[in-house]
């Protein structure tokens, strides 16, 4: 609401021929359009190319996995058999619960009417693996299944050791975190990890990743 338009008045005495180059305009706008298209549709491939550029980086020691709605950062890792590891899982979602199961060998499926939902992996990575819980914060529950679990923090009712509750899976409340210390067992090959909470929808919506475990 400022009222005046003065720029025009002065132009007359100070005539300038505007010249902005057609080429820079075309290149600029089309590259922005191309960049947005690439950002939308090709971002995952670009990320893959970048991670391939980095080469094979084997995780050891403290390895952090962040959980978001509905994906993991990172969604691929490389481990080596016999390496001592501390897996620090942190749920960054402000609202949702997340878990992290590791397994392979196909899925147990939900035999329901018209959908094909995956419940959990057939083979549990943590079977018989000694795991130490180093710290925990806002853990909803930790199903130990057949893992050999020792807990440094005082185990509460969240530690579910009874059989029949599914695979080893720490379920974190929003903002929760847990650190698991273990030595990578002699189970080389490609493993998958995923989150199957909330009616198994998180996995169905892309919350998954792969671990390549190299032989020693």
């Amino acid at each position: 609401m400022d009222g005046e338009d003065r720029s025009k008045e002065t132009v007359g005495s100070d005539a300038v021929e505007v010249d902005w180059s057609r080429r820079s305009f075309l290149i600029g706008t089309s590259s922005v359009l191309a960049a947005s298209a690439i950002a939308l549709f090709e971002s995952s491939n670009i990320a893959k190319a970048f991670s391939a550029l980095n080469g094979l980086q084997v995780d050891s020691g403290l390895t952090k996995v962040y959980q978001q709605d509905y994906y993991y950062i990172p969604n691929q890792m490389t481990w080596r058999v016999g390496t001592p590891m501390t897996l620090h899982i942190h749920n960054l979602s402000p609202t949702h619960f997340h878990e992290m199961q590791i397994g392979r060998g196909g899925f147990q499926r939900d035999p329901n009417y018209y959908t094909d939902l995956r419940i959990q992996f057939n083979e549990d990575f943590w079977d018989g693996v000694p795991v130490t819980i180093k710290e925990e914060h806002a853990v909803d529950n930790l199903v130990t299944n057949k893992a050999i679990v020792t807990s440094i923090p005082k185990p509460g009712p969240w530690l579910i050791t009874a059989p029949g509750n599914g695979n080893f899976s720490p379920t974190l409340r929003p903002g929760g975190s847990i650190s698991l210390t273990f030595t990578v067992p002699n189970k080389p090959g490609i493993w998958e990890y995923g989150c199957f909470v909330q009616g198994f929808i998180h996995y169905a919506d892309g919350m998954k990743g792969t671990i390549n475990i190299l032989p020693a």
Partner: peptide, 9 residues
């Protein structure tokens, strides 16, 4: 003559 950057850019 004055060369300027295209406004959109």
């Amino acid at each position: 003559k004055k060369q300027i950057m295209p406004p959109v850019i």
